[in-house]
Amino acid sequence: MASLMLSPAKAADANRGAELAKRWCASCHVVDGGQKQASADVPPFSAIANRSDFSPEKLAFFLLDPHPKMPNFPLSRNEAGDIAAYIGSLRK
């Protein structure tokens, strides 16, 4: 049973997550170093990645049931995992 719960995290594709983030998240968040502008009141993805409590799994679950300020994007579990993997790849 535990292996079934971990399989989406192992299959996460950070490259696909980057594409999804640029399409869906870049209007509010700075999603990569080449982006110059986004909303001032939301953290850039690099700041999210470098939080001391960051975990891709926790973020993926958050994305499936986002905070009320976030738009309601109908993400699949795989898409949420891919975006979380991309954000995790920005961790320094």
Score class of each variant (00 low, 15 high):
Ala26Gln: 13
Gly33Asn: 13
Asn15Ala: 15
Leu64Glu: 00
Phe61Ala: 06
Asp41Trp: 07
Ser52Met: 08
Val30Tyr: 08
Cys25Pro: 11
Ala80Arg: 09
Phe54Asp: 04
Glu79Ile: 06
Asn72Asp: 06
Asn78Arg: 13
Pro43Asn: 05
Asp82Arg: 10
Ser76Glu: 00
Val42Gln: 00
Ser3Gly: 03
Gly88Ala: 13
Arg77Glu: 11
Lys69Asp: 00
Glu57His: 06
Ser76Ile: 06
Asn72His: 10
Leu6Val: 12
Ala21Val: 12
Lys36Arg: 15
Leu75Val: 01
Asn15Gln: 13
Ala49Leu: 07
Asp32Arg: 05
Glu57Ala: 11
Ser3Tyr: 14
Leu75Tyr: 09
Ser27Leu: 14
Glu19Trp: 13
Glu19Phe: 14
Phe54Leu: 08
Lys58Ser: 12
Gln37Tyr: 03
Gly17Trp: 08
Asp53Leu: 05
Ala84Phe: 02
Ala14Asn: 03
Asn72Cys: 00
Arg16Leu: 12
Gly17Cys: 09
Glu57Tyr: 04
Phe54Asn: 09
Ala84Tyr: 03
Ser3Glu: 13
Gly17Ile: 08
Trp24His: 13
Pro44Met: 00
Leu59Cys: 10
Ala80Pro: 04
Pro66Lys: 07
Ala49Cys: 03
Ser39Phe: 01
Met1Trp: 10
Leu90Thr: 05
Ser3Asp: 14
Ser52Pro: 10
Val42Arg: 01
Glu79Gly: 02
Arg91Glu: 03
Ala2Arg: 15
Lys69Leu: 08
Ser7Glu: 12
Pro8Met: 13
Gly81Cys: 07
Lys22Val: 02
Asn50Leu: 05
Ser39Tyr: 01
Ser52Glu: 06
Ala80Ser: 09
Gly81Leu: 04
Asn15Pro: 01
Phe62Pro: 00
Gly17Met: 13
Ala11Pro: 07
Ser27Ile: 15
Asp53Glu: 14
Cys25Ala: 12
Lys92Ile: 05
Ala21Cys: 14
Pro74Glu: 07
Asp32Gln: 03
Gly33Ala: 15
